[in-house]
């Protein structure tokens, strides 16, 4: 911690400060400046976020095929259609499988990376950047690299080359759904892309744990390693962990790019957003049913988030009980 320098005795006493000149203009100038600075953002937020959400809710009550300005009100028919639609309900199952894979693995990997980088005595900034860099890569670009060079089904694909050294037959990672190797491709791609970002969050939290705690533990006889990790580090990271899991879950709900690019024209492995995209923008252009699905999905995300926040105590703050 930086310590403030003691004022030297030789320093002259501060001269009396003249009273600050009164601000010109009436007091409501503050209000004006508030709107000046936040207005454009609020406007953008309203135009690009709230209006589309509202419009989507509106559309969900209408028969809106090939149009976004429908006239025929059909009440809850779109909702009934979506909730009894096997593809949409199935996509929620697909999402659950995906979340079950991706949330724990990303959590564990980013925490492990953070612990490693935190321990480094040299080149810490370098490794932090290296692990963070994939975050800057686009999902589409990564999906294409995964599909065409790492996990391509031909003999010169990277994974098949490696397996070939051990005499294993070529595997068609994405083309053949049985066994479902496509999950490996999808999960590893996302893991590579997002682990670095969450590592940074954990790193920041690790740096916030007071060193005294570890010193006190050492004096009390705690051995460094698993014991201190379990009883000090992990509990201290609780709020961050909750936030990370929450963000991961929301990100998983929003998964689209890699599924869309890796599993083109399949009837399996479609998460909700891909399903809704095909519904609303496929050959039927059914915006009504698509919007109803989007509203259902939003409601689900809100519910899960609230439930999870309650369960893990997100927002209660680091260090409080």
């Amino acid at each position: 911690m930086p310590t403030p320098t003691e004022p030297g005795l030789a320093r002259p006493a501060p001269a009396p400060v003249p009273p600050a000149p009164r601000r010109r203009g009436p007091r409501r100038g503050n209000t004006f400046h508030f709107w000046l600075f936040t207005g454009p953002f609020l406007l953008g937020l309203a135009v690009f976020v709230y209006v589309p959400i509202g419009w989507s809710v509106y559309l969900s009550f209408f028969e809106a095929r090939f149009t976004v300005t429908p006239e025929k009100f059909i009440g809850l028919d779109n909702y009934r259609h979506m909730l009894t639609n096997d593809d949409f309900v199935g996509s929620l199952g697909t999402f659950t499988v995906f979340a079950a894979f991706i949330v724990p693995t990303t959590w564990a990997l980013s925490l492990a990376l953070a612990l490693l980088v935190h321990r480094l005595r040299f080149m810490r900034a370098f490794f932090r950047s290296v692990f963070f860099l994939p975050t800057a890569c686009s999902y589409v670009a990564a999906a294409l690299i995964w599909k065409m060079s790492l996990f391509s089904g031909v003999r010169f694909g990277l994974m098949n080359t490696v397996l070939g050294w051990f005499g294993v037959e070529n595997v068609a990672w994405l083309a053949d759904p049985d066994p479902p190797w496509y999950w490996l491709v999808i999960v590893t791609a996302r893991l590579w892309l997002q682990a670095g970002f969450y590592m940074i969050l954990f790193l920041a939290a690790l740096q916030n744990i007071p060193g005294e705690l570890y010193e006190a533990a050492a004096i009390d006889g705690a051995r460094p390693g698993p014991q201190t990790f379990r009883h000090i580090t992990l509990p201290q990271l609780r709020a961050t962990s909750a936030a990370v899991v929450l963000l991961l879950l929301v990100a998983a709900y929003q998964a689209f790019d890699e599924f869309y690019n890796l599993l083109d024209k399949t009837t399996w492995g479609r998460p909700p957003l891909v399903e809704l995209y095909l519904k609303a923008l496929g050959e039927n252009q059914d915006y009504g049913a698509g919007s109803a699905g989007a509203v259902i999905l939003t409601a689900l995300i809100c519910l899960v988030t609230l439930f999870q926040g309650r369960l893990m105590g997100f927002g209660r703050g680091e260090g409080t009980k």
Binding site: M148, S149, F151, E169, A172, A175, D176
Partner: peptide, 12 residues
């Protein structure tokens, strides 16, 4: 044919 292993799958 698809399951025979004689089909090229997952080509770039």
């Amino acid at each position: 044919l698809f399951t025979s292993g004689d089909l090229l799958l997952g080509a770039p």
